[in-house]
Amino acid sequence: MSKSAPETITMGTSGGGQWLAAPLRIALLIAAATVALWLVTAGSSAYLTTLIAVMFINAALAVSLTFTNGMTGMFSLGHPAFMTIGAYVAAILTFPSRRKASMLPDLPEFIASLDLSLLPATVIAGLAGALVALLVGLPVLRLRGHYLAVATLGLIVIVQGLALNWNGITRGGAGLSGIPRLSNIWWAFGFMVLTVAAVWRIKFSSLGRAMMATRENDLAAECTGIDTVRIRMLAFVIGAFFAAVAGALMAHLISVVTPRTYSIVLAFNLVVMIVIGGSGSIVGSVIAAFAITIVSELLRPVEESFGLYGMSQVIVALSLILVLYLRPRGLCGSDEPAFVKHYLNGKKHL
């Protein structure tokens, strides 16, 4: 019984009678996943490896969107825009400098001469996405309601338009191809773990509670001393950071980015993932992202052999309707499954 005997406050003793301290349990989990992944990649084709990497990146995207939308109660559709920004910024930074001069003539000299490795490029890409989110958020997040959805939808169009027409830097509609394949399944895995860890840490903290309070009741949160505009901004900007990093990693995985790679369809797919997983649930988002990525990929050959292009999209949409009808709060509601919480957070503190 966790609720009885609230007098025995056993904190700092790392979870009472459990067999390992929480940090060790987490390390063990990651180690086990790493070994499993290593075994899988050792025996599988390049195709399967890439598919798993995409799955990881999708999971990270869904988790970061559930952080912005599910936990804080906003409705942002901006992830594709931030991914596009991240992909272009990182690709321009890592592109071999000898090719940049001819391909991207309008680049400023100090960028054209850069040959960055993937890590600094993704960090800069993430910060670029975060900065754009900050600028968009400043006017929009003061308003309640669905202004953010409209504004971020507009942002997708604007970013797409910029990428299409800013030829000297983006090569227009052709996009950037031949991006060095610096990213791989391990980058994707590491990024997913990092995203889940960061979002998990925030969710089970004072900051996370402030976010959920903002979602549950804006006015009450404000009167309880929570700066709701700042909290929303934080959630939006952090979500954008992860989206931009995801875009960067994806571009370096599939070695191409065009203005239309990340479109409104992707925004829809991500929203479906977090609704199916349970809005605000990290575990739910990961499961839903895995499932939808796999299902869409399995349907690809079916689509091709029967000429039913777009069928996977229809099935995704139908599964959304089905979930909304049968289990409107999604797989996990806004919470995490109890055994996962118990495993990662240790025993309840009080």
Partner: peptide
């Protein structure tokens, strides 16, 4: 209330104002 949160979490939200940690230290 923050209906979807527990009683403890609701009251803990009130503590954010005085003791809430920064993003970095979180």
């Amino acid at each position: 209330l923050f209906a979807d949160l527990t009683v403890l979490e609701n009251v803990m939200c009130g503590g954010h104002l005085r003791h809430g940690s920064s993003l970095f230290s979180t």
